[in-house]
Design a protein around this nucleic acid. Structure first.
Lengths: 238, 238
DNA sequence: AGCGGAAATTGGTAGTACCAATTATTTTTT
DNA sequence: AAAAAATAATTGGTACTACCAATTTCCGCT
């Protein structure tokens, strides 16, 4: 007794992909014909579902190209906020403070709920990260660092954490020079600390120790900020 | 140069009928096949348009009978996120989980940064709350409870916490019977616990003990949820 | 290596056919 | 004649095919 129409079930199935992170913003959906076959429904039903999500602004389609995931969900949450942050620099600190809480929570729940696939993904990123530390490729280090935090948010298996996280990170990228850190580290001491912190977070998650993971993440964020603040200070005084 | 798809134009045409009064509430729309012919489009497009309006709650269809104009006013100008929360029960849990973290943080920072004015305001609300407990005015108790949490969010002196807090609370109010709790408490035991918890949070904030405040708030939220869950469970089994 | 055009892919629309639920109509029964 | 049952017609739900238009991919040519 499904009681829900096929088109409706199809819509929900698509929504799940939008929510659980398997189709991030910008993803091109499989072709309608493919979706219809893989989901075992007619292309009509797929189109009805897609049309509805397009109407909500969650998807948009380009004729001849494909259907894509819009960023509306993120902007819906962070858009009014973004304007305020742009105009009131004081709010930047509030944002950072919120991000601290958010990342602590994602680490906690990632340690609590990460499945084998999540762990595998994170482990791969950790390997990229350590490799980048070793070779000193700052660009790759920065990318892997961002991926690391995103993968943890995904592994927390909480859609709200996930969307707020990506929204916040994107916003911070606009207003703050996030890769400032990776640039200036003559002695390599900072890099060493970062490596240790990331591995600590990873160990806690892999060992499924939620409280440990949260503490490790909070310590990491605090360290990052203090380093960023030191650099900004030095830059301002020059 | 239509620039809009046929299905979209069809949807707008249907919307016009809903808005200009030619199809009042309860009206049975012409059959899909008829609409398709009179509007000069395929039945597919008509169905896509109708499906979208059904999703918004403006129409509903009875298999074999027809499509009807819903009486639900189009207050459904809701954000995509809200729409998703309404339909995906899992998301409700995600939201609650997020709220838990958020309220814990607001309590923490309120204890850290509340000024004299904040404390005075919270104290006034606490007095209202205890008075409501004593007299048993459930309505006033519910209002004061909400004000209490809002005042703490305000006292955290973080605009982002405040912004998200009010948004989350508003959303939860729509999808969850928040005042369910205040209704059923024959022995008064629950009210007793709530009073104690609120006072505990208040004491920690007043004493400027951030960690204590966070723990007290988390315990309070957890208690509230378990009570809500118990009631929903009991209601479902009946 | 760069360019251009053919071919494959993809969303957009239309049309047909059939199923399932409802309603209207006719027939049968009492 | 009225009620009940069977039947036909209507309507939404789903599937499939076909074709168009925009885009991308890829191959051959220069």
């Amino acid at each position: 007794m499904a009681s829900h129409s096929v088109a409706e079930q199809t819509r929900r199935a698509l929504e799940v992909h939008l929510l659980d992170g398997s189709w991030p913003v910008g993803t091109r959906l499989p072709a309608e014909r493919v979706l219809a076959e893989t989901m075992g429904v007619s292309r009509n039903s797929v189109r009805e579902a897609i049309f509805c999500l397009k109407d909500r602004g969650l998807l948009f389609s380009k004729h001849g190209s494909g259907v894509f995931v819009s960023d509306r969900l993120q902007t819906a949450i962070s858009s009014p906020w973004r304007q305020l942050v742009a105009e009131h620099p004081d709010l930047r600190w509030d944002t950072l403070e919120f991000r601290r809480e958010l990342e602590g929570a994602t680490a906690y729940y990632a340690a609590l709920r990460a499945n084998a696939s999540d762990l595998e993904k994170i482990e791969g990123i950790v390997k990229r990260l350590t490799a980048a530390y070793d070779t000193g490729e700052k660009e790759e280090e920065y990318r892997a660092d961002a991926d690391f935090h995103a993968a943890i948010a995904e592994a927390s298996h909480n859609s709200m954490f996930l969307y707020l996280h990506s929204g916040i990170v994107r916003m911070l990228r606009e207003h703050i020079c996030l890769n400032l850190m990776a640039m200036e580290d003559p002695t390599g001491a900072v890099t060493g600390h970062l490596r240790q912190q990331h591995l600590g977070i990873w160990d806690a998650i892999r060992a499924q120790h939620p409280d440990e993971a949260r503490q490790a993440m909070l310590a990491h964020i605090d360290f990052t900020w203090s380093e960023l603040a030191r650099r900004e200070e030095r830059r301002a005084s020059q």
